[in-house]
Nucleic acid binder design. Structure first.
Lengths: 225, 225
DNA sequence: TTAAGGTTTTAGGTAAGCCTTAAAATAAAC
DNA sequence: GTTTATTTTAAGGCTTACCTAAAACCTTAA
């Protein structure tokens, strides 16, 4: 009766660090705090606790990163999360943009035995409905080599591979516009002064802000056939 | 980040009261405390909080019962619990005696939308794998009219209908002896001095203590054809 | 009717996770 | 090198849910 809620916060911190420190660099505590909806002071406290537990490394004034232990733990949570997302979409027919939040709750309440039985039931899917890779049971992650939409150049063509990191607000926005993994797109033009990217998807052109574009990953289409 | 664990304790208390007060009588706080693995002081404190919230009624020195609100809330948790059990057994092929504990964690992390989608996916099952009825979405419970094994007389025949209340220890014990819902049984004799019940199931005779017998419910076979 | 036994309250504590406000340390930018 | 912004510490608090120990209180049965 104490253990459960105990883990929950820890798991959220580890998962978030994992998301923020995707490029192997340090995740600033301020960013952590913001994503978790917590004051920077509280986040700093918690980071200390997690450092003591050997789950995080903290470089003062720079940010935090996961230790090997923390990484494995985070990957296990992410695995559970994405497997549940697959189930919720493919079997329960719940909406693509809602399952992230549902899975966020289930992920902390799922035994390893359940996780692995679920993986087998689902036939060991490789990605979640939002395109993100599902870590293997031992915590290994498939490296992805896609490009953020925000890193493409006007004129580029590509196909959406995944949305990352996910949040309900973002997914709602994207779902309403059919901006989903698998969709081909064309980067028509970039408005000046850090303006939006004009992106043609599914026959329509959308103005996407820089911030949103950084959450959309693509596989560029090669002009060379 | 606060709400989740918040609900968890409340839900466990309500669920437990519902289990203990099956016969419409009051559940003593001491029994509540024992089942929850908590001191009576803590249980008393929590009962006060739940009374203030209008979920429980407390008759001092007697025990507690659920208000209509509390009842509905408890039934909703139980519904989620039993639906998960069905899924875990029927689709993930997890062991009958283990799924109770797995479901105990999932039940507090499941949105209503997920619950109802799951119910539809499972084709609205009426009972959990341990034979207990699954409350309907609006909190209605099917009345069961079966008899505790401890209330049968030597010589009686019957069929096991359900195990209630469940606990992993009990389920492990029963699973190892094939004492499962659907099994026919014969009450051979009752040992004197509150001794065990000699019960013939699946070709073998088992000595079951009074306490265990109170957890096994049966549908007596009528001699009158 | 009184003593025994169970129940409840009171008092005093713990731990995790959060909060705020304010001051100090450091990094970055000019 | 000074200013500005960010980070970290420090101090004091809150809530939930648990604990022990001791006192007060009901109920019941001898």
């Amino acid at each position: 009766m104490k253990h459960e809620s105990f883990n929950e916060s820890i798991e959220m911190y580890l998962k978030t660090v994992s998301e923020l420190a995707a490029g192997n660099d340090l995740a600033p505590i301020s960013a952590l705090a913001e994503r978790l909806g917590v004051s920077t002071v509280s986040a700093t406290e918690m980071v200390h606790r997690l450092c003591e537990k050997g789950l995080l490394d903290h470089t003062p004034y720079k940010g935090v990163s996961l230790t090997e232990d923390g990484r494995r733990r985070a990957q296990r949570v992410i695995r559970r999360h994405r497997l549940w997302e697959c189930f919720l979409v493919d079997y329960l027919n719940l909406p693509w943009e809602k399952v992230h939040d549902y899975a966020c709750r289930l992920e902390h309440a799922t035994d390893t035995a359940v996780t692995e039985a679920l993986a087998a039931f689902l036939n060991n899917p490789q990605t979640c409905p939002h395109g993100n890779p599902i870590p293997s049971a031992d915590g290994a992650v498939t490296a992805v080599r896609d490009t953020a939409l925000s890193d493409l150049q006007p004129g580029d063509h590509g196909t959406i591979t995944r949305i990352h990191p996910e949040s309900e607000l973002l997914l709602d926005y994207l779902a309403a516009r059919h901006i989903l993994p698998g969709q081909p797109l064309e980067f028509e033009e970039l408005a000046p002064f850090n303006g939006p990217l004009m992106i043609k998807i599914d026959g329509e052109t959308h103005a996407l802000g820089q911030e949103i574009a950084a959450h959309i990953f693509t596989e560029p289409a090669h002009d060379t056939l």
